[in-house]
Design a protein around this nucleic acid. Structure first.
Lengths: 193, 193
DNA sequence: ATACTCATGTAAGCTGTTACATGATTCT
DNA sequence: AGAATCATGTAACAGCTTACATGAGTAT
């Protein structure tokens, strides 16, 4: 089977580590867990499940619920091997970020102080909203599945850090206490953080 | 002009806030500044500049350097308005993250302790590499452009936080000191971080 | 009866990347 | 002379999102 996409690894993991599942279940699971660091949309999930089935990494069993269609997927041996391989291959892993609010901050020299503060506030609001989402998605107690909880803690910690960073910057800007002063001699007087 | 893409805002900002520039200059600037939170590839930059010109937000002036083609772009009045509007519209801003190493951690229950630590180490290595890149891109002294420096500090701070988080988790795993214990009664004894 | 959730999927389109192509200039 | 950098661009493709379509079961 050719190179797997990000979504493929997500599906393989969800089914391989957490057990046999339908596309719908994975969709909901992803919405409340991996969404913040690895999003997956239904338009991607369903076709990818079929591809993985065609590639022999998953098997599908039709288990209708009444007259309602339902496809439950399980991992095959090759699928399990592919999953383990991915988890342990030490490959240079993808890390990407798109932060529009930070891009605005990058260009904020063009704004007055009021507006600058507003941009930072906007960024903080964004991450506070994410924090709300993370908190609502507190994982259930599963002693043999600690790593769901660990990555949840990451989301909590990271976004809290960002919110604090914004607060600090907001107050620095509001009180004219410019964060790190540029000295007359050209040196940068970095404020310890 | 229709809704602007992310790249369009980047270009508008680079030219509008930092002054008239060629596509090549923007490409290099983005590589050492916005890359970490808003990437842009040449295959996107050049066509988008042309689109913005066609839309009347930029003007192009041909200024060949010897026999070497060179297009310098400046912001028009509508372009400046569009830039200001974007910077101050308080729109719900994009924040996206794709963190493959964290996805592996999410599924790490399927691994043994050795392998789990290795996955975390991988994640740390990634962010240490990013930190190197950020440090090498230390912005120059520009007293009237503090916000380039501020967003640089963000990159420094954020990635340092992640590296520390990984270190903590690694040692917790290595010393069998499992981070936050699940108690017999089902409660979670969260270790303060 | 109605709305919501379960459940699966497709089609169109957007955004972006990678790889390639071209050619001039400058540095070593 | 050769390598690196300046400079612009295109073509193909990958990946993902949005919106739509369909229909059955369940709760109010």
């Amino acid at each position: 089977m050719a190179d797997l996409t990000g979504t493929a690894h997500l599906l393989l993991g969800m089914i391989g580590v957490k057990g046999r599942r339908t596309g719908y279940e994975i969709k909901r699971l992803a919405e409340r867990s991996t969404r913040f660091f690895w999003a997956a949309s239904p338009g991607q999930i369903y076709p990818e499940l079929r591809r993985l089935e065609a590639g022999g990494l998953l098997t599908r069993s039709e288990e209708p619920h009444g007259g309602r269609e339902r496809n439950v997927y399980s991992v095959t041996e090759p699928g399990e091997r592919a999953l383990r391989e991915w988890l342990t291959d030490g490959s240079g892993s993808v890390f990407e970020m798109r932060n529009e609010a930070l891009l605005k901050i990058f260009f904020a020299d063009a704004l007055n102080t009021e507006e600058q503060i507003e941009v930072v506030r906007e960024m903080r609001a964004k991450h506070e909203a994410i924090l709300d989402g993370v908190r609502q998605a507190t994982p259930p107690y599963e002693p043999d599945r600690k790593f769901g909880y660990i990555s949840w803690l990451y989301g909590l910690g990271l976004n809290t850090w960002v919110v604090d960073w914004c607060k600090q910057l907001e107050s620095d800007l509001a009180e004219g206490r410019i964060p790190f002063g540029f000295e007359e001699d050209g040196s940068v007087a970095a404020r310890p953080r």
